[in-house]
Every structure is written in C-alpha cells, then in structure tokens.
Design a protein around this nucleic acid. Structure first.
Lengths: 152, 152
DNA sequence: ATGCGTGCAAATTATTTGCACGCTT
DNA sequence: AAGCGTGCAAATAATTTGCACGCAT
C-alpha cells in the first residue's frame, strides 16, 4: 500500500541508523533495504531475485545476514506466514489479511486495538511488547472467482 | 490450563471423528492425540519424546503424518512460533501470550474480539475464516527475576 | 590500516517422502 | 482379504556458518 513512501530521506535515515549501531553501509545492504520496501512481505529468496537484476553478485547468504541485522534494529519484522519466512518493512502496528486462495497478503492498520490488547493482557501480569496478528480468509477478488483452489 | 479436560469421552469422540473421515484408529495415533493434549503447544519432537516412554517404536515421521491429519480434521492447529512449528489442541478462538525471556506460551481467550475483528475486516471485502494472534512480551514470573536474558 | 561484510560452499536442521511389511478394518 | 499406516532411511529445502579476501571506515 505505502511502499512508494520510502523516500530518499528515509533510506538515508536507515543508513544512519546502521552506522549509529556500528554496522557498515554497503551497496548490498542498501539494495536489500530498497527491495524490502519495494515489494509486499517478500521472502529472502524474492529479495535476492529482485536484487539480482541490478546487483548480480549479491549472495542469498548476504540477504539472510542483512535481514537479520535489519530485524535486530527494528527496521524490519520477521513474519511466519505459510511455509517460508517473510519480511515486513512496515513496523507500525498492523494485522495481515492473508487470502488462502491466492496467497495475497495485505496490511490492515490496528493501532488503537493494540492499546486495547495491552490493557486486556495487563491484568494477567503480562507486559506486552508487540504482537503478530494474522487474519486468514478469502479476499474480495477470490470471492468473485468461483473455481479457485486453496494455495495455503 | 485445561489440558486435563481431555476425558475418555473426548478421546473416543476424536477416534470416531477419525473413523468418520476414513482414517484408521491406531494405538500410535491415539498416543499422539493424548500427547498433544497432555502438554502445552508441543513441537512434533516433544510429542515424539513424550510418547517414546510408553511406545518406543513410534517414529518421528509418523508423528508428523498424524499431526497433519489432525490438523486437516480441525482437531489440532498448526502454530508458527519461534523457529519450530508447534501444535495446539485447543481449537477455540484464543491468543497466545509468549514470554520472550522464558519462552512460556499461555492461552488467552478472545471470543468476542474475534467477532469484532471479522466485522472490521468485512468492509474491505475480506471474508475472515480464522486468525492467529501471538502476543509477545514478558510474563509475570520473568518480570520478577532481574538478570534473565531473552530466549526468543 | 583495520577489521567488518561478502561470496562461496559446506553444514545444519526441520519436515517430507518412497517403500515394503504388518495390522486395522 | 484389502489396503492404510508404520518404521526406516533417504530426499528436500530453508537457513546458518566457516573461511579468506576486498572494501568501507
């Protein structure tokens, strides 16, 4: 939805964030950051393929290593959807609408509910830090089509 | 919380459910079902170990195959928490409180919110079928201890 | 100049699958 | 009797790791 929002500005902010934490800013890393924001919830493999066009030398291992760094810094989130891990450049609190027919994953904003959740869980003595909400179902497009079969 | 609730009755109900769907009821399968309900969100490996005491011959492959059958029949749910898959015998709508210090996973009931979620998502044209809600944070016990380090 | 980040290939690990035999139906 | 379910071992696949060299600092 808002992947194009990643301006030159935020790219350099991320570069600065890497430097601030003692990480070096390399062309590979920035290419991976760009690819992360350029597609919706990509797998490591998908990021690798997308980068390969312009940077054919980048290895899949580097993609994995960089995604781990980005996740540690809170720039990316690590999602467990379907069989393979996916990565999310959107760190605002939100849910994922996952279509079990076509596999499409859509962000769905949820800021106020996040507060509500924290309040409900507090009485248990549990201190909420973050949450993952995956909503499985059938998207509008797939409801229209008739004879499609599940992919997830 | 409510693992002991699994009475002889519900075990035979599950056996019947297997038969009704054309699956055979074998000692291995029932041992796996019992193990699933006897522990909280076990991995396939954990189920296998627990069973091995009484049924040393049961293989890990059989555990995986059976868990797949149970999941298909809606008797178990397949959770993606941490690095390995876990299985949940509680199919009522609920969230998981996951402590990032000690790794403990606790069920948290959420029936009314489930309806609320479905209603919020409908306007998008999305038909919700089910959801997974994982709440990460620090449990009461770990808040008390001071110098513990994250495991997740 | 220093040493972190990279590519490569090998290692690790969870899960799946093929096959022949025995047990549930 | 028929064929599904099982154990075993091999196959698959995602992710991680070790190592030597070059590049960002």
């Amino acid at each position: 939805m808002n992947f194009q929002n990643l301006s030159q500005e935020s790219l350099s902010q991320i570069a600065q964030r890497l430097r601030d934490h003692g990480y070096r800013v390399t062309p590979q890393r920035m290419a991976i950051v760009e690819a992360l924001f350029a597609s919706s919830h990509p797998t490591a493999e998908e990021i690798h393929q997308q980068i390969s066009r312009r940077f054919p030398m980048v290895s899949l291992a580097t993609v994995y290593k960089t995604l781990r760094v980005l996740t540690e810094l809170g720039i990316a989130r690590d999602l467990k959807i379907g069989e393979r891990n996916r990565f999310d450049g959107n760190t605002d609190p939100h849910a994922h609408l996952i279509c079990i027919r076509c596999g499409q994953i859509t962000d769905f904003p949820l800021s106020s509910q996040g507060v509500a959740l924290a309040e409900e869980v507090e009485p248990q003595g549990f201190q909420m830090l973050w949450y993952d909400l995956e909503i499985y179902g059938i998207c509008r497009q797939c409801q229209a089509k008739k004879g499609s079969s599940p992919t997830l």
